[in-house]
Computed example of a mutant assay.
Amino acid sequence: MGTLKFSHTSPDGGETGWAQARVDCLVTSPRMATLTAVVTRSNVSEAGARLGISVQQGTRGEPDRLGFSWGVVNFDPGNVDESGTPVVPPAGTCMAPAPFTTVINGGYEVVHAEIKKSPGSPEGADRRD
Rank of each mutant, 00 (worst) to 15 (best):
P77A: 11
Q56E: 14
V80H: 10
K116E: 15
P119V: 10
S54E: 04
P89S: 07
T28A: 08
G52Y: 02
T59G: 11
G67D: 04
V23G: 06
M32P: 00
A49V: 11
Q57C: 03
P90C: 04
V111E: 13
S45I: 01
D12Q: 15
A21N: 05
W18A: 08
Q20W: 06
P99E: 11
D76H: 08
D24M: 06
G71M: 09
W70V: 00
G92F: 06
A19L: 15
R22F: 09
T85S: 12
R22I: 04
G106M: 10
D126T: 05
T93F: 03
V39G: 03
V38W: 02
P77E: 10
G120T: 12
E15S: 14
R22G: 08
D64H: 00
G106S: 13
G92A: 15
R50H: 03
S69V: 05
P122T: 10
T28K: 04
V111T: 15
G78Y: 12
L26E: 09
E15K: 13
L26Q: 07
G61L: 11
P11Y: 10
G107K: 05
C25E: 03
G124P: 08
H112D: 15
A125K: 05
G124A: 12
W18E: 11
W70Q: 00
P122L: 11
S45H: 10
K116S: 14
M32G: 00
I104M: 06
S83R: 14
T102N: 11
A96S: 11
G78W: 04
I53Y: 07
P119L: 11
C94T: 01
E62A: 07
A91M: 11
T102H: 04
P97W: 03
P11W: 10
A96I: 07
G84I: 12
T59H: 07
A113H: 15
T34Q: 01
N74R: 13
G58S: 06
N105H: 13
R31E: 07
L51C: 00
L26P: 03
K116A: 15
R41N: 13
T101H: 06
A113Y: 12
E109A: 13
T16Q: 14
G61Q: 07
T93P: 05
R41C: 01
T101D: 12
D76W: 07
D81I: 06
V87G: 03
E114A: 14
S69R: 00
A47T: 10
G48S: 05
P97S: 07
T59E: 15
V23H: 06
